[in-house]
Amino acid sequence: MKNAIRELRARQSLSQAELAKAMQVSRQTINAIETERYTPSLPLALALARYFETTVEEVFHADGRA
C-alpha cells in the first residue's frame, strides 16, 4: 500500500531504526512498509499516524480502493 512514511520520517530527520524503536517494531518492518512490501495492521497504522500527528488517510493511500 502506498504511503508517506518515508517523507514524514525524512521531514523529522528520523532514521528507520529510530522510528522502529518508537513503534516497537523491527527496522526491517519499517523498511517493508516504506517499500510497500508490507501493509501494517490497523493498530500500527494508527500509531504511525499519531506519531506523525496526522491521520491514517494522510499517511496511507488505498490506491484506487474504496
Partner: peptide
C-alpha cells in the same frame, strides 16, 4: 534476516 526471525529476534507483527 531469516535466521534472526528463526531465533525470534526483533519479533513483531510482520515477522
Amino acid at each position: 534476516d531469516t535466521l534472526r526471525m528463526l531465533r525470534g529476534v526483533d519479533d513483531d507483527e510482520r515477522t
